[in-house]
Every structure is written in structure tokens, then in C-alpha cells.
Design a protein around this nucleic acid. Structure first.
Lengths: 115, 115
DNA sequence: GTAACCGCTTTCCTTTGGGAAACTGCTATC
DNA sequence: GATAGCAGTTTCCCAAAGGAAAGCGGTTAC
């Protein structure tokens, strides 16, 4: 059964959607999170794994992701201290979001570009 | 059962997610689509309904949405011709995407801001 | 014929995001 | 003592996104 989105579904949820997009937006946030989901990494390891990112942007995006509790910065009291970034348990909540976006994106590309 | 995203879920789907975000991104695309889902509208009606948008941006975003087949531009041979924009049937496919994003966004705001 | 409406387009400007390069303070190694 | 690595920061620059204002070609109402 096909139904249009209701008015309620539209307007009352727009703010939520915009909030969600704000967290995921930008060129690097998802690549960083996905790299950390594969394995925790140190700053310079991330620099190598996330190809093309500059240290300024990486530092900035890590702060944003930390504030949103998607990434955790762990400091170990070795000498010298070692700092490791890892995807938080909460970042698993993105699973549904990313699967839905991925499915729609794949279908959309097929529809618009035919491949 | 909680599981981390698999490597396959991560890297192979990143491009799809980025494609999806590209279509939805920007300050105005969702407000325009949602306004048109409520009811089809003419250009100047949209200008009033989507508060704060400039004609340049509205025209530009409508073209983008048309290219992505989310919005249809219909020309009626009245005198003078009347032009009506409406949400396409395909735009209903966004329903799942928007519900998922809205749910996550709402939960996320509660988590981060506590409201 | 003049004013007003419709559906835009054009020009110019500001803001934002992102990139390149150099630099910093600390530690460790040679 | 010099060099290198870590985890960034700072400065400067460029490009893309977006906004304000004006204009434009057509139509219709006065």
C-alpha cells in the first residue's frame, strides 16, 4: 500500500532530520567513523587510513565526533602517552541509519543513472 | 544482539550513503520537498511557504530536485500558462529514509542535549 | 499605457568548508 | 646534540554555498 507522507510526518520531523544530517555532514565524518569501526587508531594512523585528509580537518572532525559521542579519545599513560581514537558503542546506533541511506542511495543511482 | 558494523557494511556502502546525502543535502531541499508533499504549489506560493528562501536558490533547488525525479514541473496551457510543482510518486521512497533519520536525530538530541 | 503579477535570471557579495604548509612542544633514538 | 615521530595548532588561501537586490519578458487588470 502506497501512501503519501502525512503532514505530521513532514513538518514535525524536519528538525530531527536536519539535526541528524548535521551530525553526518561534511566530506570526512563518515570515512573517519567507518575507519574507526574497522579498528581503533592513533592520529597518524588515521591520517594514513583516511586518504587525503589534512591534520587540521582531522583534528576538527574528531572533536565534532567526540562531542556527539560517536568517537572516544582514550589516553594511555605510557611514556610517552599514547592516544587512541575508537568508535563508541553508541556509534552502532548509526547502523540502521547508514543501511537505510545506503539502500536508498544505491536504488537512486540505478534509477537516475541506470547503473 | 549487538554487533559492530562489518567491514563490508562500511566500505562498500560508503559511496551509496554519500550519494544519498548529496541528493538531500543543503539548507532547502527537504523543506521544499516536504512543502510540495503537503500540496503542489506554484513558484511564488513556494516562495511564501518556504520561509526565507530567495528566488535564485528556489529555482536552483527545484532544478536539482527535478533532475533527481523527486519533484515534477507541470506546465498547463492556460493563458497565461501556469506552472505547478509537485512531489513525484517516487518521492514517497524517501519515507523510510526520512523516518529513520528523524528517529535517530530525535534520539540523538535527547542523548546529547538531554531534551 | 501604466502598474502589477508570474516565473524566473543576473550580478554582486558574504559566509562556510576545506586544503597546503609551516610550526609547536614533547619524547625517544642515534 | 641532531634527528625523527607523535599529536596536533596556526596561518593563509581558495572554492562552493548561499543571500540581497535588481532586472526581464510575458500577461493581465485598471
Amino acid at each position: 500500500m502506497k501512501t503519501k507522507l502525512t503532514k505530521a510526518e513532514c513538518s514535525s520531523n524536519l528538525k530531527n532530520v536536519i539535526d541528524a544530517l548535521y551530525v553526518l555532514n561534511g566530506k570526512w565524518k563518515l570515512p573517519i567513523v567507518l575507519s574507526l569501526v574497522n579498528s581503533p587508531k592513533r592520529f597518524n594512523e588515521l591520517m594514513k587510513d583516511v586518504e587525503g585528509i589534512s591534520p587540521k580537518i582531522l583534528a576538527q572532525e574528531l572533536k565534532h565526533l567526540e562531542q556527539n559521542e560517536l568517537v572516544e579519545r582514550k589516553v594511555f599513560a605510557t611514556t610517552p602517552v599514547s592516544i587512541v581514537y575508537e568508535a563508541s558503542e553508541y556509534s552502532e546506533s548509526l547502523k540502521d541509519v547508514l543501511r537505510t541511506l545506503s539502500d536508498w542511495g544505491a536504488g537512486h543511482r540505478r534509477k537516475i543513472l541506470g547503473r
